[in-house]
Write a protein that binds this DNA or RNA. Structure first.
Lengths: 201, 201
DNA sequence: TCACCAGTTAACCGAACGGTCAAATAATTC
DNA sequence: GAATTATTTGACCGTTCGGTTAACTGGTGA
């Protein structure tokens, strides 16, 4: 039935890349098309609107990152190791992008979510959903750590909420100061919030 | 020397209001002019560009809020009371704006900072400066609390950095979920980070 | 082989964008 | 009251915005 194309995938990748390193409002449909090497007509063949593309791009990004997240947060791994490993990966990823683009780019979901939360209900809801997916990993890890007596928290869900907010906050701070070094505070902040029992180095 | 005018102040107020409840990219110079009841020619009589207006608007907002911050963080007040009072005010302010606009609007500085950090160096630097001003209040309060043995932290500056990041993170989270109720976690998160000694209710 | 149809192309749309300008106006100073 | 000058006015500029359209192309399935 008709011809096939990878234009859709190229548009998703271009959109993620450009919006992540700039902002939703700072990137035009034309910019995305040029980067993807696709005509605007094709853009609107695959996506009804710019915001629909953004939503699809974030969904695609998640699907790509999901296996790595599943591995990091595998229940085979000790719960605190999962969290520490995750912190390390965030720091490495941001440091790498900082080297590549000259900027700390922060969390792609939170970036657009914060920008458009009061303007585009669909994007706001999608952002919330994306962040919630990450939250569930954290929550499970913290609940496991709690069960194993590794940390000192009363309510695992509440603690997970605090932890995820702090990670978001540190990413924003690092972006605004454009300093990936701030992200070395990720792990200590998290451990402090969890009242983690100290492990001798 | 020529006539006087309050157009500048009206533009500053309109810009703050519109950008805070929407976003920098989501508000046009025309929008701001209409809200302020000022012609576009007058806009460019007072400000060389849209981004210069934004910077001036945030500076004006700070100057307006500064007396209240000085009062809250007065060294006459017990250090932890300062922080707790501040949390309460943030929560109240966001709840009020949520009732008025239908949205959790978050921190005005962090909002634009996060949106434009990778695009506009002047705004990025200004945002960093604004957040640093708030940081100094927190840092002083935490240092005082530490001296008085009210909390359990090794490095007051590092702890202040963690606290300010977490506040930022909770505000973003509340904005994305559009739920001011999340901000009730402000105080407990902060106290936990500081290892505050429990005070019997 | 050929009909079908997903995908491509590039010109085009009206609206909105940030910003400019020269002339008109009114408040202040002397 | 005249000279000065900060402010106001609203038309105007070229560009870019998100999105549309209709004709065209070529791979696929029958």
């Amino acid at each position: 039935m008709g011809r096939t194309s990878d234009a859709r995938e190229k548009l998703l990748a271009a959109a993620l890349d450009l919006i992540w390193t700039s902002s939703y409002g700072g990137v035009s449909v034309d910019d995305i098309c040029v980067r993807a090497g696709v005509n605007k007509g094709s853009f609107y063949h695959f996506f009804p609107s710019k915001s629909d593309l953004a939503v699809a791009a974030y969904e695609a990004h998640w699907q790509e990152k999901r296996p790595a997240m599943d591995a990091v947060f595998s229940s085979q791994n000790p719960p605190l190791d999962r969290l520490i490993d995750w912190c390390r990966r965030i720091q490495e990823g941001q440091t790498e992008m900082h080297a590549q683009y000259g900027f700390v780019v922060g969390c792609p979901y939170a970036n657009v979510g914060s920008e458009l939360a009061t303007q585009d209900p669909k994007i706001r809801a999608k952002t919330q959903e994306m962040l919630d997916r990450g939250f569930r990993y954290i929550e499970a890890a913290i609940a496991d750590a709690q069960r194993q007596g590794l940390i000192d928290v009363a309510d695992a869900t509440a603690a997970a909420k605090q932890v995820s907010s702090c990670v978001l906050g540190l990413l924003i701070q690092a972006k605004i100061e454009n300093d990936p070094g701030l992200l070395s505070e990720l792990e200590p902040t998290m451990m402090r919030l969890l009242g983690a029992k100290m492990v001798p180095a």
